[in-house]
Nucleic acid binder design. Structure first.
Lengths: 224, 224
DNA sequence: GCATTCATTTGCGTATGCATTAAATAATGC
DNA sequence: GCATTATTTAATGCATACGCAAATGAATGC
């Protein structure tokens, strides 16, 4: 993801490490952690921890609560609904722009590859890899939309979806329809049919939202 | 805007002050400023300045460039196009949700008031106040959409629009059509006609985008 | 002159120190 | 006992200190 030869600053490392700890549940949703505690844990001073926390706060992953430490934000079903609604609009915008952009099949290679991977993962029932490729597909779609702001908001929101998915992935039925949708979207974009691309994708996302909300409602914790 | 009795922290003050300085052009777009320089200017230490800068960076107002100081980000026509596209989607989402929400006329009071103010301001050709009310209208619309994430992204992007508008406001023709659009949108929402609300507002925003891009292209600086 | 190397400056990234103040605990009055 | 106030504790917010590395400028070689 970042093959830059530059060696990253302590603050950047803190951001990465904290993100990972949050995603793998090492820092549980809803839990509180003192800055100083995190500092010793990551073997650095409070300063980079604080700066990283500020960054992550603006990304909606945690919250700084004076004297209570940083709180890892849980994602409730209501939050998920908001997130999916925003994602739907941004991805549909991307789908429309991508369809209008007259991309060649070659330009859409990454999109096609993601579909292939998903189909293969689906065949061997490798959900982890399916999810990874699905993610890649959506990210590539938004990238093709050529709107850097939409992209960065997408990434922020998508982070939260990934978090929720880590809990719901194995509760859901096999995503056969999902793969079908992706293929149709790909075709619509390749053909330059913007209206259809948006139509397909809006449905696709709306279904995903309902699926997610349904699964979350069945989940004992009901927030992640 | 914030009548809270709490007295705000130095960092928060720094955020507010820097924002104001940026909006009033006191810190010009494209200019660089050393952290230490800003610190003496705001009469505080570098720490809150840095923290504020980090926050503003995540809001897209400036950029921290090691050894070159914080750079106030200019907004180019390309940026504006991206921003308007995102705003269009988020506001249309809000319009749809607002229409679906079965709001009473009473709930829509603030929206109506904003329209009245805009019409009055238009009559007496008070563009400053027209812009202020227009802003309020859009913000209220998104608020009615009841999606806090959409709202905060909206606010971020809208900040940039305000910045650009401060330069283009007096170049544009009187916004008569704009007011007409607002009234129609209000009616569609009040009647619960989501499809029409979206339709109207998408057009409205698309027109605004083109107007803005057109004005910017005529502007000597061509970025703000 | 021009390029290259070396010395110097300086801004930032990080660490550390400290005052403030919210929270927690103990103490007091009823 | 219970409520209220005083006292202590401790985490933060901010200031300050400092080393490093980038940028600048001087000095040297060609």
């Amino acid at each position: 993801m970042q093959p830059s030869g530059k060696q990253l600053s302590t603050t950047q490392r803190a951001v990465h490490l904290l993100r990972e700890m949050i995603f793998r549940g090492d820092l549980a949703a809803g839990s509180d952690h003192l800055e100083s505690e995190l500092a010793v844990r990551l073997e650095m001073s409070r300063t980079p921890i604080r700066e990283a926390a500020l960054t992550l706060e603006s990304q909606g992953l945690l919250e700084l609560r004076p004297r209570k430490g940083v709180r890892i934000l849980p994602v409730s079903p209501d939050d998920m609904e908001e997130i999916y609604d925003v994602l739907t609009e941004l991805e549909c915008l991307a789908a429309r722009r991508a369809a209008e952009a007259n991309y060649s099949r070659h330009d859409l290679k990454a999109l096609a590859a993601a579909i292939e991977n998903m189909e293969h993962a689906l065949e061997i029932k490798d959900l982890e890899n399916w999810a990874k490729s699905d993610d890649l597909f959506h990210r590539e779609l938004v990238r093709l939309g050529q709107n850097s702001r939409a992209f960065s908001v997408f990434e922020m929101m998508n982070d939260q979806v990934r978090r929720a998915r880590s809990v719901t992935l194995f509760m859901r039925p096999l995503p056969v329809q999902s793969n079908e949708d992706h293929r149709q979207l790909y075709e619509a974009i390749a053909k330059g049919d913007a209206t259809r691309a948006v139509e397909i994708h809006r449905d696709h996302r709306q279904n995903a939202k309902h699926m997610m909300l349904d699964l979350l409602s069945k989940h004992r914790l009901n927030s992640v």
